[in-house]
Computed example of a mutant assay.
Amino acid sequence: MVEDLLRELAPQVLGALVRHHGGFDLCEDAVQEALLAASLQWPEEGIPGNPKGWLITVASRRWIELWRNDSARRRREEAAAVQAPPDPDLVPAVDDTLTLLLLCCHPALTTVSQVALTLRAVGGLGTAEIARAFLVPETTIGQRISRAKQRIKASGAEFGLPPPAELVKRVDAVLRVLYLIFNEGYTASSGSTLHRVELSAEAIRLTRQLHSRLPQDAEVAGLLALMLLTDARRPARTRTDGALVPLADQDRGRWNAGFIAEGTALITATLASAPIGPYQLQAAIAAVHDDAARAEDTDWLQILGLYELLHASAPGPMVTLNRIVAVAMVRGARVALLELADAETDPALAGHHRVSTVRAHLLDMAGDREAAREHYRLAAKRTLSVPEQRYLESRAAML
């Protein structure tokens, strides 16, 4: 498929141009135009024999045009500056995916800019595709990407791996960005659909590439395992009309057995051989859920123990809420309600629809149907996700 091939080649072509010409911003613009040309020509004319070479040649020609039109460089002598395009047959067989990911997640950028730039420069998605995925205007994404490239340029960042002392922090930033992309694809924060598969699939693809570059990094393996074990449930998360199906009610026969096997093998090997990190713990929790043939077979005691470790090592609002649900399953709803009352004093949880959702669930477990109904309705008003609204309203109606 042309689209898949272009996304695979995008970082390779960009890496070749940056290595040859320098200047990430101009090279990235040139590659985007080459990708657009290919997406229009290849379906009609067929994929060339050397698709990577074709893209490098077209992108290099466009780079020269962009360079010539750059007002800041017109004063230079063209003969001294314009370089011949790199020979596709002489481009070193270097995989620049990791280098590009680290550059796109440069600490000078905001998180939203890191996400947008990663999807475009490394993922090969066009500005319009990214805008549609995040339900924002194309001009907004375009401005974010433009500002991000200017900030990278102003920072003086070079195209290469950072020093070892900085590499760990930069990889952490890459993992955070890939995790955000996956989560937005798996459970969209707003809009009429629960999933944005193009985002979750792209996050998995990029994380696979990162794992191939850093096979010994336990947290990279943990994140990939977490994505696979979570995405395995996607086929059963919605009904034909798009309605949300909670985990306990899902048809587990529809789960992706291949993803579960791959994710379980990854996290089992990683936990046995490396220090434990937050992504590994989340993957282990997902593996316990996926291992249960029926909802009632879920080992909630083990899940609570894993959440205790996660809460101690990487506390966060959603970790807190998920741990409280596990507390309810092990120690009872009344105990969990007391913990929820204490937890919602955290400003990060104040007014969050998931607090009302959890409280409604716990009240229902405790037998207080009237109060549960009120909180399901409150949660429905607070979420921007249409499938979540419909599910929460249906729960209220059932009570």
Results as ranks from 00 to 15, higher is better:
267 I>S: 07
119 L>P: 00
144 R>N: 03
254 R>W: 05
336 A>Y: 09
242 G>Y: 00
252 R>I: 10
44 E>H: 08
362 L>Q: 07
318 M>E: 08
77 E>V: 15
288 V>K: 12
395 R>W: 03
272 A>H: 11
357 T>W: 09
263 G>H: 06
3 E>W: 09
99 T>D: 09
249 D>L: 04
239 R>D: 06
267 I>N: 06
134 F>P: 00
26 L>R: 13
265 A>F: 06
394 S>C: 02
223 L>C: 03
353 H>N: 02
238 T>I: 01
366 A>H: 09
181 I>M: 02
183 N>M: 01
176 R>S: 03
9 L>A: 09
209 Q>D: 01
269 A>I: 01
106 H>T: 09
45 E>Y: 08
13 V>C: 05
13 V>F: 11
170 R>I: 04
285 I>Q: 06
333 A>M: 08
53 G>Y: 14
352 H>C: 00
37 A>M: 15
270 T>S: 13
110 T>S: 11
220 V>R: 02
327 V>L: 13
119 L>A: 05
19 R>A: 09
132 R>C: 01
203 A>M: 08
62 R>C: 03
111 T>R: 07
321 L>S: 01
376 Y>C: 04
10 A>E: 09
390 R>G: 00
331 R>P: 07
93 A>V: 12
165 A>V: 13
90 L>S: 11
268 T>E: 12
41 Q>M: 12
60 S>P: 13
72 A>Q: 13
73 R>F: 15
323 R>M: 07
156 G>C: 15
218 A>R: 05
94 V>P: 07
237 R>K: 01
218 A>P: 07
245 V>M: 01
302 Q>G: 14
32 Q>W: 13
235 P>Q: 02
290 D>G: 04
137 P>F: 01
8 E>F: 10
8 E>R: 12
65 E>A: 13
260 I>M: 07
46 G>A: 07
280 Q>T: 08
300 W>G: 05
20 H>K: 05
78 E>Q: 15
249 D>W: 07
257 A>Q: 11
255 W>L: 05
254 R>Y: 04
35 L>E: 06
278 P>Y: 09
107 P>L: 09
277 G>Y: 13
164 P>R: 13
289 H>C: 09
355 V>F: 06
72 A>M: 12
359 R>T: 09
74 R>Q: 14
350 A>K: 10
133 A>V: 02
159 F>L: 08
305 G>K: 15
35 L>D: 02
15 G>C: 10
359 R>E: 07
362 L>E: 04
294 R>K: 14
370 E>V: 15
297 D>F: 14
247 L>D: 06
373 R>P: 03
8 E>I: 11
87 D>M: 15
9 L>G: 02
156 G>T: 09
118 T>V: 07
236 A>Y: 02
375 H>W: 12
291 D>P: 12
62 R>Y: 10
395 R>G: 08
121 A>T: 05
246 P>H: 01
122 V>K: 02
212 S>Q: 10
387 P>I: 06
